[in-house]
């Protein structure tokens, strides 16, 4: 029995339980460094989390059958993980001062691509539509000080 097959047979709940236990223990350890009025409550919660996590893990371990409730892992990882990455890059671009409109357009096109649109004209038209729509709604109608580039900033704030 190789280690690989062992992992494959482990149920998602066993992983979840293990993860929660680790998080709970870590948070409990952190909590002990807080002052006398501030540590008890988070410590108790962390400990409860660790115990509940362990219980979930153990129960999953004991249950014989495989849990299929997760569905096809590849499909949704392709969607959610790719989307998170695209959006994370988008926020990084905003943080780096690359403006709002440009990165947003790129991100929207990437999101459309992820959801399965391949037609170039649709990517372009819908991408522009969403970008302009969101920008007009927040940047102009709602006058949000978006991190837009300076030339545009001067234009819309006057």
């Amino acid at each position: 029995m190789s280690e690989n097959s062992n992992i494959q047979r482990l149920k998602p709940d066993a992983w979840l339980g293990g993860f929660l236990t680790v998080v709970g223990l870590w948070a409990a350890r952190e909590a002990t460094s807080f002052d006398e009025f501030s540590w008890v409550y988070p410590f108790a919660l962390s400990a409860a989390l660790a115990v509940l996590g362990a219980a979930i893990g153990l129960r999953a371990f004991k249950a014989g059958r495989n849990d299929k409730s997760m569905g096809d892992a590849r499909v949704f990882l392709q969607g959610a993980v790719a989307m998170t990455l695209v959006l994370a890059l988008w926020v990084t671009a905003l943080d780096q001062g690359l403006g709002y409109v440009g990165p947003t357009f790129v991100a929207v096109v990437a999101l459309l691509w992820i959801t399965g649109i391949r037609d170039r004209r649709r990517l372009l038209v819908n991408g522009l539509g969403v970008t302009v729509g969101v920008f007009v709604l927040f940047g102009i109608i709602f006058a949000t000080p978006l991190p837009v580039l300076e030339p545009l900033q001067i234009l819309i704030r006057q």
Binding site: L98, G102, E150, P151
Partner: peptide
């Protein structure tokens, strides 16, 4: 990319603002 964008931005805005014609735009 940032450099390019900044350069473009600087080109549009033009020379740095002089205190003499302050304020020439809205103040945050």
């Amino acid at each position: 990319l940032k450099c390019v964008v900044l350069a473009a931005a600087a080109a549009v805005v033009g020379a740095p603002v002089h205190a003499a014609d302050y304020p020439s735009r809205n103040i945050d």
